[in-house]
């Protein structure tokens, strides 16, 4: 299997409290060095709570944000200047809010033509043919092309967003919470469509979501993000059923599941660490029941603990949860 996307030590710091002159008042490490490989044809799920850096990571991967440090390689070729036009042909993005990702004053046809025209310099006749092909693939009717975005439901708008990503002809697609804004009955339609398209066009997906069940249902592998760092990576079948990192376990136990009694798996007072004043050592230690002295001093690094499972923890969990 070849590696479609290789991220090495990708980092993003945001200055906060910027002043007109002089250095900023503080720095938030939104993404701490992240290293991940995604194989061709694979779906890598990324889960984590709000504010853990999922969207920042995704935006760096498509060139919308310049990374502070680290490299991105697509099929072995480095992409180091943050130029979305360069990225656009190789890696595309599907947005969380389907309606606001479509310009309200353009027809769907104008929206669909943009990537063909600007990324591929395609002549008009070819464009029309290609748009028809793609619309057929995402089950949209051609008469939609001359309408405006506000005339569509969330599910239809998300299909249009997916169609636009396909038009760029990129092999890697980042799906940033693609179904969170949709209703459950429509969510399943879109997830199934994504699975179809993946087979049909030989795509590689990065699927970002806060919904563990959805991630588990669509992913081959899952990476768990906490406070800007990857804390666990493993096969989707194992990550939640046999978590190695105490945080993954907490996530899995917090998800409401039919047939499991209600219980808050941790004390109710906990909060995420303060990004302006990050803790030393392991960022999870204040919420962790296994924390020991070493956790306060040394930040754990990713280590492979089982076949295909890596975890950043000094005392990884063993055995079934």
């Amino acid at each position: 299997m070849t590696t479609a996307l290789a991220i090495t030590d990708l980092t993003k710091d945001f200055p906060v409290g910027k002043r007109l002159f002089g250095p900023p008042r503080g720095v938030v490490h939104a993404v701490r060095p992240v290293t991940l490989d995604v194989a061709e044809g694979e779906t890598l799920g990324i889960v984590g709570e709000s504010g853990c850096g999922k969207s920042t990571l995704a935006r760096m991967l498509v060139g919308l944000l310049p990374p502070t440090a680290g490299t991105i390689k697509i099929n072995g070729q480095p992409l180091d200047n943050a130029d979305p036009a360069l990225f656009g042909r190789k890696i595309q993005y599907v947005f969380q809010d389907p309606i606001s990702s479509l310009n309200p004053r353009k027809t769907i046809r104008q929206i669909m033509e943009a990537p063909l025209r600007h990324l591929h310099n395609m002549p008009a006749a070819d464009r029309a043919r290609r748009i028809n092909q793609i619309f057929a693939a995402v089950n949209l009717r051609e008469e939609f092309l001359d309408r405006y975005p506000h005339e569509f439901s969330g599910g239809q708008a998300q299909r249009i967003g997916i169609a636009r990503a396909l038009a760029a002809d990129a092999r890697i697609v980042i799906l940033d919470e693609p179904v969170s804004a949709l209703d459950v009955s429509v969510q399943a339609q879109v997830l199934n469509l994504l699975a179809d398209l993946k087979g049909q066009f030989g795509l590689t997906y990065l699927f970002i979501s806060h919904d563990l069940a959805v991630v588990e249902a669509v992913s081959d592998r899952v990476a768990v993000l906490y406070f800007g760092s990857v804390v666990e990576v493993g096969p989707a079948t194992a990550v939640f059923s046999q978590p190695r990192h105490p945080y993954t376990k907490l996530l899995a136990e917090s998800a409401p599941v039919v047939g499991r009694p209600l219980a808050a798996p941790e004390g109710r007072e906990t909060e995420l660490p303060d990004p302006l004043n990050p803790p030393t050592g392991c960022a999870f230690r204040e919420r962790c029941s296994k924390a020991s002295a070493i956790c306060a001093q040394i930040a754990p690094v990713m280590t492979e603990v089982a076949d295909g499972v890596s975890v950043a923890c000094h005392h990884p969990l063993t055995g079934p949860a």
Binding site: L64, P84, G88, D97, S101, A114, P115, L119, R164, A168
Partner: peptide, 10 residues
């Protein structure tokens, strides 16, 4: 988001 999308369309 549609401005980001336009960027990604080159």
């Amino acid at each position: 988001e549609f401005v980001d999308a336009a960027r990604l369309c080159g």
